[in-house]
Amino acid sequence: MANFKVNGEDKTLDIEPDMPLLWALRDELGMTGTKFGCGIAACGACTVHINGVAVRSCVTPVSAIEGQEVTTIEGLATAAVGSNPSNPALTAVQQAWIDHQVPQCGYCQSGMIMAVSSLLAQNPNPSDAEIDSSITNVCRCGTYPRVRRAIRSLATA
């Protein structure tokens, strides 16, 4: 049995200990906001938070997160309640993504938003170099200039 919390709810799953969290979320729990991109932690589409820190779920076996707190894109706003008074359904990062019209195809953006949220929680005013070294997600549509603009708008807010 695997036991962990997802967006505040206790989950108990009868699955193999080596099943990656990505597939536990998508196929066992039906939570499809977290995306499969590469399966080897090379693209970041599957990024979630474990205890508030960005982790690539496609290479994280559920045995490694026993009893821990998982936050996915679906629960990001709830986890950060009050961070965006103008629209409690969205975090400030999500709102900035709308304001700057960041997503294109959008497939990588769950992971991108989770990675950026984690970065800003640890470092509210990152330099360009810090953004470059911590946000290594692949976006095939090339939304990087807008990702940077959106991060900048939050950092200087």
């Binding site: 939570m31 499809t32 995306k35 894109i73 999500q94 709308i98 959008g106 497939y107 938003i113």
Partner: peptide
């Protein structure tokens, strides 16, 4: 004008083909 597809793309609700999960599905 703001795109209508963006809000669903920032909160994980935008459906992609790979997200289909009809009842009883196999893989």
């Amino acid at each position: 004008i703001s795109r209508n597809d963006i809000p669903a793309k920032v909160n994980g609700t935008a459906p992609y083909g790979i997200d289909a999960q009809p009842e009883g599905m196999l893989y």
